[in-house]
Design a protein around this nucleic acid. Structure first.
Lengths: 292, 292
DNA sequence: TGTTATTCATAGATTTGATCTATAGCTCCT
DNA sequence: AGGAGCTATAGATCAAATCTATGAATAACA
């Protein structure tokens, strides 16, 4: 027995409506087609599934048994189809994003809000971790896309460059004597510096910059959150190295001011990573559209 | 979305084996066929169901969702197919027989025993009732076949004549003076007669016979079971009207003897009734084969 | 009690679309 | 670099699903 499963669909409708004619119209077929399909099923089993009479058809004992299975099966299929349609319309599904550092809070948040407002039924899963962790999650298929600082060069990944970020040193009123001054890196090192934790991309970048001038940047304080970085600078515990865009509010208020340096700090770019040659989930591709 | 359900079978195997090639061989198809089928499904949903790589395929998020439904659905179908095969082989199912009078015990029993021995998994349902009750059960589809005394003439029924039964009057030793004598119906009426209950076919038949000779047969005792009919005759409470084949043992032992009459009692036939133009269940048709 | 309408079954023609073969492209492994 | 696995694509083929037309049986109705 190796039936075409299409026959079960016909059987289901014939049994459900009690009429081959009605089943035919439900399936957009002609009645002889349905008649033939039922006969095929019956022959394949060597059993009679319906009693036929001039009012329609009725299940036999054996037909009832078959129906008890097929009904459930067909209902599952129709649920599956509804679910697929929901996934397609983003009335369902989930979007899994990996983000390193504080990009979530300071860069992604508005997009996430818009997205969630537009597709409230899509579950948002935010995984935060270091850049290598995010890459690993992506490769294992645990997230749909990653948002990290460039540069990333991995042949398996496709990276789309997003906005540009400018890191800078900021201080609070405790160091207001530096306002307006242009410092050398050397001079900066006279002050207590507050940096983000060792494994962050930003930290590595600035350390390298100092090294390229033969200087060794050693933080007085080391923290694991951008919020703390800002807070400590405001309290005057030192000069924090932060992303300018993330302290826009404080700079405007004047609770923090940017330290001018005599050398430029190269800008950083945010990159959106997805797996190369892998299809995007419907949720993720809609999100990328939104970002662009 | 109006998919050919056959595609789900292909999807199921592709997901289950993680390989289009293996799915193809499981389904006795070629790999391009499977590839094409999956693509059709994906297009119909507007979603990607599989990640393809050189090792095979893996379900996407959306594919996983679909699989969670389709797997159950396919398992139900394969159970259904197994069940149908079982019904066909009589490894399952039920046989529902309606019988009037005592035909079950005295006529059907050996067949039922053989049938049950041969197909122990088939459930036997025996419904006993009067002839009209049996006919009603048959027409309502509550039994597969009925076993009653002929004649039956109902255009909806197909009646197969089975063995012939000869009714007769029997008595026990209390009336041994009648042994060897040939009685007229008139003479018989001098003795107390024991008959089966009013609504039985046998009772009607013998009453009519007497009436055709202008005689009125009125029983001294009326009982509802053939066993009682026999037992009462043996105890000498009267002359019982019974089916000769059902008292074969007693006649041979000599505990009962048959009363000779000067007029013949027309033989009765057992009829096997089934619904005309209705398919027989597998269980019932096997049983009819056995009886013939 | 004809008559009509509705049911399912059957026969044969048609055409769709599933399946095949052949081949290309890709990735991993030796 | 070459081979062996995998999937994708293109185009041809052909089986089988579907259709139209019709028949036969039954129920409903006038």
């Amino acid at each position: 027995m190796n039936n075409n499963y299409e026959l079960y669909k016909v059987f289901y409708w014939a049994a459900k409506t009690g009429s081959l004619t009605q089943a035919a119209s439900a399936l957009y077929l002609t009645q002889p087609s349905v008649s033939h399909a039922i006969k095929q099923l019956e022959n394949s089993f060597g059993l009679t599934l319906f009693y036929r009479n001039s009012k329609g058809v009725a299940l036999t004992q054996e037909g009832e048994v078959l129906y008890s299975y097929i009904e459930k099966s067909q209902i599952l299929i129709s649920l599956a189809e509804k679910q697929m349609a929901a996934l397609k319309n983003l009335d369902s599904g989930e979007l899994r994003i990996g983000g390193s550092d504080s990009l979530f809070k300071h860069y992604m948040l508005p997009y996430l809000e818009t997205y969630h407002q537009q597709y409230p039924a899509v579950g948002l899963h935010l995984n935060h971790g270091t850049t290598p962790e995010i890459i690993a999650l992506l490769k294992e298929g645990n997230i749909d896309l990653g948002v990290v600082r460039m540069p990333i060069s991995d042949p398996q990944l496709e990276v789309r460059e997003s906005i540009q970020l400018q890191d800078c040193f900021v201080a609070g009123s405790r160091y207001s004597e530096l306002k307006g001054m242009v410092l050398t890196l050397d001079m900066l090192l006279q002050y207590p510096v507050i940096l983000f934790s060792r494994n962050s991309r930003a930290r590595m970048a600035i350390t390298e910059l100092f090294q390229s001038y033969g200087l060794n940047l050693k933080p007085e304080i080391e923290v694991g959150s951008v919020d703390l970085l800002i807070e400590l600078a405001r309290k005057g515990l030192g000069i924090s190295y932060v992303t300018r865009e993330f302290v826009a509010k404080e700079l405007e208020e004047g609770t923090l001011f940017e330290i001018q340096l005599d050398v430029p700090i190269p800008p950083a770019h945010v990159g959106i990573m997805i797996m190369r040659n892998m299809p995007l989930s419907a949720t993720a591709s809609k999100f990328l559209e939104l970002i662009r």
